[in-house]
Design a protein around this nucleic acid. Sequence first.
DNA 1: TAATTAAACGAACGTTCGTTTGATTAATAG
DNA 2: CTATTAATCAAACGAACGTTCGTTTAATTA
Lengths: 196, 196
Amino acid sequence: MARTKGSVGADTKTAIYSAAKKLIEAKGFEAMTLRQLAAEVGVQPGSVYRYVESKDELLQALMNQHMVSLIENWEKLERKGDDPVSRLKAFVAFHIRYHIERRADVVIANLELRSLGEEYRADVVTKRSQYEVNLRNILSDGVKTGAFPKVDLEVAAFAIIAMLTGVCFWYRPDGRLSIDEIIEVHQKLVLQGVVG
Amino acid sequence: MARTKGSVGADTKTAIYSAAKKLIEAKGFEAMTLRQLAAEVGVQPGSVYRYVESKDELLQALMNQHMVSLIENWEKLERKGDDPVSRLKAFVAFHIRYHIERRADVVIANLELRSLGEEYRADVVTKRSQYEVNLRNILSDGVKTGAFPKVDLEVAAFAIIAMLTGVCFWYRPDGRLSIDEIIEVHQKLVLQGVVG
DNA sequence: TAATTAAACGAACGTTCGTTTGATTAATAG
DNA sequence: CTATTAATCAAACGAACGTTCGTTTAATTA
């Protein structure tokens, strides 16, 4: 056999990328083999190389795509004119929802940085801190206007993002709380802490 | 050559475990090869098997050791008679300090669960939630005494632990803030949030 | 000192990995 | 209808993997 009936390159490429996401999320990048990936797509191992330069380049593409679209989507939603409290609540809501809906992307972006070649890693790291600046700016504005008391911006931003991203690792669609409820709890925690 | 001068089994075993921690932290478990591990220890690949049943068992041992000693160390330190606010502050301080001082252990325990065989994974997961119960109890007591307003205990505990553990992934010993200062910022964030 | 045990070597095992290549068939364009 | 291009297969490549094993040397015991 050779070319199969009804085969379309663009579709195969899409299938490869989404199968890769699924497998890397479940097993990790190093543990996923190209043979598993090919099998998941329903194709021979060698055929993957029509759409992917190498295994490393595949990981790079996945991570980059995720970071770019994360940044873009927040930029689309952000209301820079709003007061800092509203903006912070909006950021919390956006981050949690976006990440829950793209669990595989997030898991990959957060667990597989080590597997990325050095050439690519710096680029992803840059994009990540580019996203984090959005949160730092909100906090900084809040401190300026007096809405928030003085706080170490860098640490607070790291802490908040870690907390929000963490949702991905325990959230279950059939869990006790809805996404909206989870967002509410986190908004309260971020703004007021446990003491209230 | 065969047995080398001055070789002591206990020392070699220790060297294997700490080299494994270092390499897994840096590259990930799947990416670390036994040949790299042996080279780091200064021994032939086959010799590792005098001290380790298999690569999988090595990972299991590392993760289990970490979880057991994490639980033990908190139990030693906990003051169950104190008020909830003090206990929560103590937990924050302990968790951050303990984790920063054992970065490799923490990175492994948090990133390599997927690489653990199913037989072992459940055990580690159980130990983890066993540790998390400590925090939930503090929060629960605080809500009971009225020190904390009502909050979803499960979500709050997850959120706080994610935030605290996150420190491991950005902390640098030569950074701007000392560990004590980082702890202070986090205590304030946990208790009062950014609004204060 | 002789016998025994501990510790490591060195070489190899079969398997699987990522990747390359050339042939072969399906779809498309002239 | 023919020529060309797109898409895939089937087979193989060398390298590296985790692991095993018989041998050799150092340390310990009798």
